[in-house]
Simulated scan of single mutants.
Amino acid sequence: MTTIKSVKRWFWWHKWTSLICTAFLLLLCLTGLPLIFHEEIEHFSEKEKTQETQVAATTKPLDELLVTAQNRFKGRVVKLLYWDREHPGNISITMGDSLMSHYETDKYVIINSFSGKIEETPEVQEGFMYTMFRLHVDMFAGIPGKLFMGLMGILFIIAIISGIMLYGPIMKKFDFGMIRTERSSRLKWLDMHNLLGIVTLTWATVVGFTGVINTLSDVVLGLWQQGQLAEMTAPYKNAAPLSGKLTSLDAAVKKVQAKEALMRPYIVAFPGTMFSSKHHYAIFVQGTTPLTSRILKPALIDAKTGTLTDIRDMPWYVNTLFISEPLHFGDYGGIPLKVIWALFDIATIVVLGSGLYLWFARNKSTRDQLARLEATYHLTKEMA
């Protein structure tokens, strides 16, 4: 009796968590499929560009590239600068109406660091991939949308756990992988649902768990700002606001490179932006291996004096976020891993779709059975 009660309890959890999150999970799987291959799709859809090849052994000074960007978008301020690893030699600069302006109003300049010429001023807030990304991340609802998707991810994980607890008792009498094709359509899809569910178990758990972590990115950023960043900039808490010309960005980057010779610069956050303080360049460096290239290490350079004031490893919760994002999209092993991710994604779509079908079919079967019982009751009553 205890076993029957336990199975019924797990069935209740599996049914309702699945029903609540299935529509949103279908959206995530459908939008996630092109996002797995976002680099390849963007490369295929890019217009042919006449990008200048390397013509010198050295690149143009970063300070010179900043002036080029500022001349392109006069009246705007530089917020971020990063090295484009997908297109070596390119520097991307983010320009905002102000240092704390919303990212949706930002403009972007891509400059060839060898020639010093502007390659492109892309509009990143439009197009098919941007739409897929926003639907996948927050359904165009900002932070509330992210957190809602995180809740759906938690329900998905509960549905997976409850499905595992149901699979054992159900399959005790059957062979693994059995599909009863000779029986009703509903039984065939039930067997298919169970088989694909257990086959995609590990993948679905990894993607679901990392997806939940990714929805907490804004929370993680806030914790880092109030924790480690506040500690690193504490000596400047009562310092006078910056005024006049800032120290050379080239000199600041070289100072960090000299300190971390085995790492390479990835992003520079300018003073006053959310990733830095009002008095520092925050220069984030990364490793060179597939794993360490996902983990960033912040170094703070006094933007007035050029002094390296602090450099630290990120807290574990930030590194967890850094590692989970590429793992969520299968972005660690090149095309082979992406293809595997895509196949599991398609299998999960089938699992979700078959789950919906089974629920509707079960309800229809129940309604039909009740209708037959009611008809029999009336017929018996008339005969009496």
Rank of each mutant, 00 (worst) to 15 (best):
P61I: 06
T247M: 08
I118P: 01
T376W: 08
T105R: 01
V351E: 13
T181A: 02
L249R: 05
G89M: 01
D106Q: 02
R312E: 07
T215W: 00
T2E: 15
K255T: 15
V339F: 11
R72W: 00
L201P: 01
I198R: 08
E325W: 06
A375H: 08
Y130P: 05
F284Q: 13
V350C: 09
T22M: 13
W16G: 00
I36S: 00
R180C: 02
I311E: 11
I161N: 00
K278W: 09
L25M: 14
A282I: 05
L65R: 09
E120V: 05
L379C: 05
L30C: 08
F128H: 06
K5C: 01
A141Q: 13
R367H: 13
F73H: 12
F360L: 05
S324I: 03
G227E: 10
I311F: 07
S115C: 10
T2Q: 15
S101A: 15
H136M: 02
P290K: 08
Y108I: 12
Y103S: 13
T181G: 00
R294T: 12
G330L: 04
I91C: 03
L379H: 12
H279Y: 07
T273S: 09
Y317V: 00
V124T: 07
I323V: 15
R76S: 11
W12M: 11
E104D: 15
M95E: 09
E86Y: 11
S217D: 08
K5R: 13
E126Q: 15
F73K: 04
W12A: 13
A234P: 05
K381F: 06
P326M: 02
E119A: 00
I154R: 00
S45R: 12
Y236W: 14
Y281W: 11
F44W: 15
N112H: 00
E123K: 14
V55T: 14
T58Y: 10
I143K: 15
I295S: 05
S98C: 05
T3S: 13
G116T: 02
D218S: 15
G145M: 08
A303I: 01
H328E: 07
I323Q: 07
W316I: 13
S162W: 00
P271W: 03
K79N: 14
M192H: 02
P241G: 04
F140M: 02
I160R: 01
Q369E: 10
Y377R: 14
M274T: 12
T215I: 01
F156Y: 12
